[in-house]
């Protein structure tokens, strides 16, 4: 079999893939906002003074991190309706992405929180700040900026996993490419284009993360 890249076909499918990429970007952005929030909740729960809360949260995070995202997507989409929680495929997919990457983000936050010197807590206590104020005004503003690059890496990772939503027939890039391929029996162009799309944005985001990293370093004077 000889191989030839079909430019006419490429032109034909590019607009369709372009439209589908909007869904991919939507899933990425909303999924990551969710992940960032869930991660913070997990991280704070893991600092709880109650040992059972700490251990249970740790176990949940460990569980989510050790099992495949694909099965978690199925779980949210197929199992939750049995308990009366019904949602469309896109919502289910985004929720699963948020939960999965939230458990990763919680570890990142935890590293950031662990790096706050003990003196900061002690100073807050000495000033008689409430726990909430201490977290809100003293600890979190110091803990988050240094971990932004690590969070950025998970944003890229989440982005690259959005093709999994094709498994529950969300019409994102991969699903669209597969449908195009099965209609025309030409898989090379759609799948390669999807690959290039991901490669391009991954490289761009990786460069952005490095920029942020460098900027943070100068801002904090390497302290």
């Amino acid at each position: 079999m000889t191989f030839e890249w079909d430019w006419a076909y490429t032109q034909e499918i590019l607009p369709i893939l372009g439209k589908a990429s909007i869904i991919t970007v939507q899933a990425t952005v909303i999924g990551f906002i969710l992940a960032a929030l869930i991660g913070l909740v997990f991280a704070l729960l893991r600092m709880s003074t109650l040992a059972p809360v700490r251990l249970a949260t740790g176990a949940v995070v460990e569980f989510i991190r050790s099992t495949p995202l694909l099965i978690q997507i199925f779980f949210v989409y197929f199992v939750l309706p049995e308990f009366g929680v019904t949602m469309d495929a896109m919502t289910a997919g985004i929720l699963a992405l948020g939960l999965h990457y939230g458990s990763y983000c919680s570890e990142v936050y935890r590293a950031g929180l662990d790096n706050i010197p003990k003196g900061q807590w002690e100073a807050a206590t000495a000033l008689n700040l409430s726990t909430l104020t201490t977290f809100k005004d003293i600890i979190i503003p110091q803990a988050i900026p240094p971990v932004v690059p690590a969070l950025g890496n998970y944003l890229v990772a989440l982005f690259k996993e959005t093709p999994l939503l094709s498994a529950i027939a969300v019409l994102e890039l991969m699903q669209t490419a597969k449908i195009l391929g099965s209609e025309s029996f030409q898989y090379t162009e759609p799948i390669t284009l999807v690959g290039l799309f991901f490669l391009f944005f991954s490289l761009v985001s990786a460069a952005l993360v490095r920029q942020v990293e460098a900027w943070l370093k100068t801002r904090h004077g390497g302290a």
């Binding site: 079999m1 191989f3 690259k160 996993e161 959005t162 093709p163 999994l164 094709s166 991969m174 490419a177 597969k178 391929g181 898989y187 090379t188 799948i191 390669t192 999807v194 690959g195 991901f198 490669l199 991954s202 490289l203 990786a206």
Partner: peptide, 20 residues
């Protein structure tokens, strides 16, 4: 590292046959 594992899987599965 820059593309999805699923894209890579599909590429090897669907596209490689076109290269024989």
């Amino acid at each position: 590292r820059g593309t999805s594992a699923l894209v890579q899987l599909f590429w090897l599965f669907f596209v490689l046959p076109y290269f024989g």
